[in-house]
Design a protein around this nucleic acid. Structure first.
Lengths: 216, 216, 216, 216
DNA sequence: CATGAATGAGGTTTCATTCAT
DNA sequence: GATGAATGAAACCTCATTCAT
């Protein structure tokens, strides 16, 4: 299950302490405001060892971000098992993300607020292929079944959902975390669900509704 | 010898060159990868002068970002004049943003990819009160008129739209700008529009539609 | 007199403190055992400033060594003024060196014990053209006048003297500085003087002496 | 698989390869510019093994230098056998050194240009007791027999010769090895020989010579 | 007993920022 | 009021040495 095969993998203990430290410091300061020496010292690891394994401050953080994103992906995969209804799948996916980012606030701060995007986007780990493919499959299936709007590039459906998640997290932080991030999952998901459905053009719907009303 | 005529107004020129330089360099490198010396040199100013006016690298960029966001706000205000239909207003707002970010790609890269978020979010300029108030007013009005979902915090409606804009821009860049960012404005806006409407629960809508069909 | 013309010359005070520190630390430890950070701290100068001016640890030390060698050269030039007798000139030169190295023991330790020779010999400052030319002129003159052995490359005459100086200093240190280095100047100089004279082949000399003795 | 026959004697091979490597790398770079890892790799040994046997980079080199100096000492001892004439003994010693350093240029570069003197001088191996005693005995004997200047500390006679050797080697390298180092052995040795003889004051000699001439 | 991993630290370069002019 | 010098610190790379296996 775990990557025991990876070559040159440092001691698990080593990586654990590093991870904690990264969460701690990068969640509370901008990327450039954190020194590798601080990290090394707080993690009780040698500065040179970090360089040996990760090569740069960026790669160090990317490496952990990738790992933590993998955990979220695993969790999503796990939860989707045995689910058939598309809407429930998507709602679950949406909730799992909000929930994960809320419970791992430090991690979410890192990916949404701290990471130097320019460089991260050039890095393999940004793509998150496993999660991307997973979500794309669900959405594509919905489009093929006619449940979701198939006029739209599937990737845009994905962006629609992911953009809402990211923005919601950012503003949850910015606005002081007054209530749990996931507390409004249902109402927020409904917005997404409405948004990604096929356009029995809203006008038509309204006309329909009005027609019904007139009938009664 | 040169420009002795405007001896007392070198400032505008100064700021202009600084702005161009900032767009140029910060759009192509992470914040921490850009040196103030580079900026000063490219702008033809002493770096100490920059410090005199802006105090720090962050404030320097924030200052210009604020200005450029102001331009977008002005443009939105300008375009909304004389518009009455809410949907058209929102569509316009959505399009104006995509259009502005596309035509000022460097600026958009800076705010979405480069700025150290942690610090920016603590800065006055992040709030963008004028634009925030403007959009909030439009959305709130829609909620009050019953056209938009009023079960939802107006700020969430805003996040819904803004998140989509930000994510779309980021992925437009990431995916290689194959086609104009604003080329899908309509189809994308329809997603938002559907998403923010009151929840005549989709089920109900479908039921309505079916009922109509049966009637005819 | 002093190099006020040199561009980018650091503050004199700055250089003074650096010099003292260099004498202090490099005279007591091998080159590679001294850290630039220590030097900077002891000299009360910023570490970055050192690099700005000298570029490397080696160049830093070479720069001062060159200066101090220049002082010795000046001193020799000064003392030779108004001297006519070749032997006295050479004796003076020999003594001035022993004396200078003895009174500036730290400096001498640096050039004879500490400097990484390989690199120093590739450096301009190793040549010490001013002093080299000065001594070569004196020796060459002696050869031309028939006072010194002209069968030998002048440079070898120079090596003969310089090698003795260097070795004497090294062993003076090694043997615990029991008595002043220059205390045996005369007896040591006589060795050199005898060595560099034209070879009225020793055998001949002895034969001569014996002949004289027989005559009397 | 390989050399199982001398399973218990891999040491000589090990040390041989180490020696070659040391000659190779330390003759071409300053002490601090050579990494133990390079040495270990080139010699095909683990660097930790080197530490096991030698304890430090310095001791590693000192150990080999001591061995190679021993070879020179042996050679000198060997050649002095059966020689009676003091002058010839000294000439031989002088020539053997120049010859050895010339033919083992890499070794000579190490002792004269590379070794961190400060540390080496504190090391047992610097003293070279066997060679020191050997040369001192020869010189002392010369002094006792009245052939050499006995006004001078025997050690200074030694320094006189050794300084010339060291300086000559250094400058031979520095000046580009235009001709064999030992090519001028005779003329150089004559300088030393003249230098270390008793001072039937040169003036006296000249007077003698002149007297003879007058007589004839 | 030999090895590679881990370490602390140094050299070098570059940076943001401060300071004195 | 604008400037360059000086600074402290960081990233980066590599090293000598120690340590656990």
């Amino acid at each position: 299950m775990v990557d025991e095969t990876r070559k040159n993998a440092p001691k698990s203990d080593f990586r654990e302490r590093l991870g904690s430290t990264i969460l701690e410091v990068f969640s509370e300061a901008d990327f450039h405001a954190v020194g590798i020496r601080d990290i090394a010292q707080k993690a009780g690891v040698s500065f040179a060892t970090i360089y040996k394994y990760y090569g740069s401050k960026e790669q160090l953080v990317f490496s952990f971000v990738d790992q933590w994103m993998g955990v979220l992906t695993d969790r999503i995969i796990d939860h989707l098992h045995g689910m058939a209804d598309l809407k429930e799948k998507l709602r679950k996916i949406f909730w799992l993300q909000l929930d994960y980012y809320e419970r791992h606030e430090e991690f979410a701060k890192i990916i949404f607020l701290t990471l130097p995007m320019k460089t991260w986007m050039s890095d393999e780990s940004f793509e998150q292929h496993r999660m991307f493919d997973l979500l794309m499959d669900v959405l594509r299936q919905g489009q093929e079944e006619g449940i979701l709007n198939d006029q739209i590039d599937t990737r845009i459906l994905l962006d629609f959902m992911m953009g809402f998640v990211q923005r919601s997290f950012m503003m949850w932080i910015q606005r002081g975390k007054k209530e749990p991030l996931s507390s409004q999952t249902d109402i927020m998901f409904d917005m997404i669900w409405q948004g990604i459905q096929p356009p029995h053009s809203t006008d038509k719907q309204q006309a329909d509704s009005r027609a019904i009303e007139q009938l009664s």
